[in-house]
Structure formats: C-alpha cells, structure tokens
Computed example of a mutant assay.
Amino acid sequence: MGKLLENLHLVMLVGLVAAIGLMMGFHADTLTESAMLQWLHVFFGITWIGLLYYFNFVQIPTMPSIPAELKPAVGKYIAPKALFFFRWGAALTVLTGLILAWSNGYLVESLTYAEGYRLIGIGMWLAIIMAFNVWFIIWPNQKKALGMVEADDATKASSARTAMLTSRINTLLSIPMLYAMTTFSPLGG
C-alpha cells in the first residue's frame, strides 16, 4: 500500500478507476455527458480554489516567518509547481463550466442574466473574472516575482505585491462565486 500511495500518478489513476466504477455501478444506464462534465467541473474547481486558499491561507501568511535561507526553495520548487496546477485548474474549471452550461442549454441565458439564470450567471462571470486575473495578472507578475523572467529587485517586489493583492481579490470573489455555483441548481435559479 505504501508503494501505491508514494506514487501520485498511480493514486490519481486508482482514484479515477474508483470514480468510474462508482459511476458504472450506480448510474450505468443514466450516466450522461452532463453528469461527466459536472464531475470534471467540480474536480477542476476544487483544484483551482483549493490552491487559491492554500496560497492565501498558508503560503502568503507563512512566508515572512520562513528563514531567509529557506525562502528560495519555496520560490524555486513549490510555488512554480503550485502555480502550474493553479492556472490550469482555473482554465479547465471555466472551460468545463461553459461547456456544461452550453450542453444543458443555459449558456447564453446565464451570461446575459436572463430570468431564472441570474444566480448562475453571476457565478459564471465571477469565475471568468477570477480566471482572467489568474492568467493575465497573477501569473505574469508571479513569473517576475519568482525570477522566472528577468526583473530587477524593485520590479520583483512590486510584482509580488500585485500578484498577492489580485489573489486576495480572487479569494474575496470566490466566496460569492461558490454560493452562486452551489445553490443555482438546488434552488432552481
């Protein structure tokens, strides 16, 4: 069991096989494209928002207490890997969400706040804004702050602050976004 759990790719594969087994065992005759998309949307969303909360609740507040000689390890090894999954989690969450809304026939109604679709529309627009922030503000500034692209010390400090503040904006927006996303269907819009 230790060997299985030491290999992340194998853990993910076994988890996927277990999920497919549940799907086939409980919903083989009723499993739909929509259900699969919803499952993927939630998986990618948990990855994205989980990392958003990790950065804001753990990494950012902890960095000032990390000894100076250890900080480069976070910037060189941990942050770039976490940012990879963070930005692709954002992209895939929004993509699967848009495809899910389209396949269920409420994409345009949601994005235009049609009657009965305003709550999910608000959630969708908040997620789109957040994903934009990830790809076009946080990521470019993090690359400078982490030294992945050439930048002087003043630019690195300014970029780190911009990335942090934008990440905090995303944390703020994630709270109403999650409400809109999780209550749309049960409350009927």
Rank of each mutant, 00 (worst) to 15 (best):
A154H: 05
K143Y: 02
P80E: 10
T183G: 00
M124K: 09
M23G: 06
T93N: 07
G2P: 07
Q59D: 04
M124F: 15
L10G: 02
M177W: 04
H41C: 04
T166G: 08
G123H: 06
M24W: 01
K156P: 00
F86G: 06
M23C: 01
G21M: 12
D153L: 10
T112F: 08
M164Y: 01
L10Y: 01
A101F: 11
N56S: 15
E33M: 14
H27C: 02
M1K: 08
I128M: 15
K143S: 10
N7E: 14
M181E: 04
R161T: 11
L31Y: 05
Q38E: 02
I66K: 01
W135R: 01
I99R: 00
S110N: 05
E6D: 15
A114S: 12
V14Q: 06
A101Q: 14
E6S: 15
F44V: 01
A82C: 01
A151C: 02
L107A: 02
A19L: 12
Y53P: 13
I169Y: 13
V14A: 13
T166Y: 10
L8C: 04
T182E: 00
G25I: 02
T62V: 07
N7C: 14
G97C: 08
R168M: 13
V134Y: 08
G123A: 10
A73R: 00
L22C: 11
T183H: 01
A91D: 07
F43Q: 14
L10T: 07
I120N: 03
F85R: 09
F43W: 15
N56Y: 07
P176Q: 08
I122Q: 15
M36Q: 04
K81I: 14
L111T: 00
L92S: 03
G116E: 11
P176F: 10
K76F: 10
N170K: 03
F136V: 10
W135Q: 06
P72F: 03
A154C: 07
W88R: 05
L22N: 06
Y113D: 03
L37P: 04
G45S: 09
A101Y: 09
I120E: 00
